[in-house]
Design a binder for these strands. Structure first.
Length: 487
RNA sequence: GGUCCUGUGGCCGAGUGGUUAGGCUCAGCUCUGCAAAAGCUGCUACUCCAGUUCGAACCUGGACGGGACCUCCA
């Protein structure tokens, strides 16, 4: 197997991937905070890691993919002040916090299923690991790198930074961070400006709270990932991922916690996916420019002229590298939708090709190109470019403009199976069992009647059939060996 | 204000010191009763200025534009 190269945020370079204990791979991705519907930007991140997960599986790795659900501890601001996001929503909606959690967790899973993302191996929750989080906080206090004050526990960043590289992930200078961190209200419990909370004292009205050695409270945001990754993947594992917006604060603090806890950087490779933008601006809940997946599927959004299917959206996202920003627009989506349909039509055509004795295309090279693209830091846009080469070959062979052998057809089927279905996770959309068979038969009848009319040079009838079918969203395609159709 | 990233054809987007990215759009051709589909061809792009080089869109410096992070966010 060829070497897989992954861009590692720690080194800012592409590095050859070497699993700690092959064929096993441990992979942790920071999941959503379930206090509202996931928007499309969130989905992009998880789809990017879905491709990574799928490709590692395809290469034969046994991957344990852990993606958490943040159902407590994520405050409105990162200054460790303000309300817990989920508690706040619960109060507004007059629901139990766990009702909020349940609603949006289920919604998140449903959406990811629509996008055909594989479920992670383990999907642990922050509330299910309160004890583990407290244990880590205790240990860090013992090591002298965290302190309790007034019922809360804070990580002592400046003390930690004396012996460790706190800013390994960002390459920033600590002094600059200290200078530039803004003063926030309500942080008088902290010793240092960069200190962050491991445990936060709960106010009486706070809904989600647990007893602890430091009194009743709730965990800080960053510590949940340290607790859950350590529990399920060990103190050191292979890959850790998340959105780029988590790099500077969340992941930096996560590393500091782990190093303080057990002296080890948790993951060897840190991967960060870029943002989805709308008109050049980051899509985010706080900016109010976010798209919900359902709005996209139905087309019910001011920026959209029509709806787009989950697979078309998935393909759209694959056409950009995960480390580039992806700008969202109606035109770009429409273009991708066509490309996706072309890809799927060619697969149907492939199933009807008749083999020749000789061939004039090097499909082995094509397959190799596909692997090379993916091995180069999961370069799906280049992979897709190669797949369009395959489409050209399939369509040309169908037009008898070039020839493929039986082995070529098998190879093309493999390429589709491996890269289109297994790795990119695309699937055919219109399949629906029985009614489909009936439709096939009816369409055969209609096209046979039209062929008869054409043979009789009754073009008025044949055109009427074609036009009526077009109105019904069915496209008729006349080829050399008769007509075919697609929706 | 600080740190970092980025600027590619009508649109979206790869890429990289000398060789076609790819998709979509548009135009022409082939095929076809016509159209569509499909194939072929074309629209020959790399913000600007200076430098390094035999040669730069790709390296260096500067200018201008856009973005991210430093504050909740995937």
């Amino acid at each position: 197997m060829e070497k897989l190269f992954i861009y590692n945020t720690l080194s800012r370079k592409k590095e050859e991937f070497k699993a700690i204990n092959p064929p096993f791979v441990g992979m942790y991705v920071c999941g959503p905070t379930v206090y509202s519907d996931v928007h499309l930007g969130n989905c992009r991140t998880f789809m990017s890691f879905d491709i990574i997960y799928r490709y590692l599986l395809h290469l034969g790795y046994k991957v344990r993919y852990v993606r958490n659900i943040t159902d407590a501890g994520h405050l409105e601001s990162d200054g460790d002040v303000g309300e817990d996001k989920i508690s706040k929503k619960a109060k507004l909606a007059q629901l139990e916090p766990m009702e909020i959690v349940q609603k949006y967790t289920v919604g998140f899973r449903d959406i990811m299923a629509l996008f055909n993302a594989l479920p992670p191996s383990i999907e642990p929750t922050a509330t299910g690991h309160i004890i583990e989080q407290q244990e880590i906080a205790k240990k860090i206090i013992e090591k002298g790198l965290a302190y309790e004050h007034n019922g809360s526990v804070y990580f002592d960043v400046e003390k930690y930074a004396k012996d460790n590289n706190y800013t390994a992930l960002t390459g920033r200078k600590l002094d600059e961070l200290l200078e530039n961190t803004r003063d926030l209200d309500g942080q008088q419990d902290k010793k240092g400006r960069l200190d962050f909370a491991l445990w936060i004292k709960a106010k009486p009205e706070h809904l989600m709270k647990w007893p602890s050695p430091w009194g009743v409270g709730f965990p800080g945001w960053h510590i949940e990932c340290s607790a859950m990754s350590t529990k399920y993947l060990g103190e050191q594992f292979d890959l850790h991922g998340g959105g780029m917006d988590l790099q500077a604060t969340h992941h930096t603090n996560e590393i500091a916690q782990n190093v303080a806890y057990c002296g080890k950087t948790p993951a060897n490779y840190w991967m960060h996916t870029n943002m989805l933008t709308v008109n050049g601006q980051k899509m985010s809940k706080s900016l109010g420019n976010s798209f919900l997946p359902m709005e996209l599927f139905t087309g019910n959004h001011p920026l959209l002229t029509k709806g787009f299917s989950p697979m078309a959206v998935r393909f759209f996202m694959m056409q950009t590298h995960y480390r580039s920003t992806l700008d969202f627009s109606n035109e770009a989506l429409t273009a991708s939708e066509k490309g996706y349909q072309k890809l799927m039509e060619a697969y149907k055509t492939l199933q009807t090709l008749t083999p020749s004795a000789n061939a004039n295309e090097d499909l082995k090279a094509l397959e190799r190109n596909c692997y090379e693209a993916m091995n180069d830091d999961f370069n799906t846009p280049v992979l897709i470019a190669h797949l369009f080469d395959a489409i050209r070959i399939i369509n040309s062979a169908n037009d008898k403009k070039l020839f493929v052998t039986k082995e070529d057809i098998q190879l093309l089927n493999n390429i589709y199976q491996y890269f289109v279905f297994d790795v990119m996770g695309l699937k055919k959309e219109e399949e629906s069992g029985k009614s489909n068979v009936a439709l096939e038969n009816v369409m055969k009848l209609v096209l046979d009647l039209r062929a008869k009319a054409k043979n009789n040079k009754d073009f008025a009838t044949s055109d009427e059939i074609r036009n009526r079918l077009t109105e019904a969203n069915i496209q008729v395609k006349d080829g050399k060996d008769g007509s075919s159709w697609s929706i």
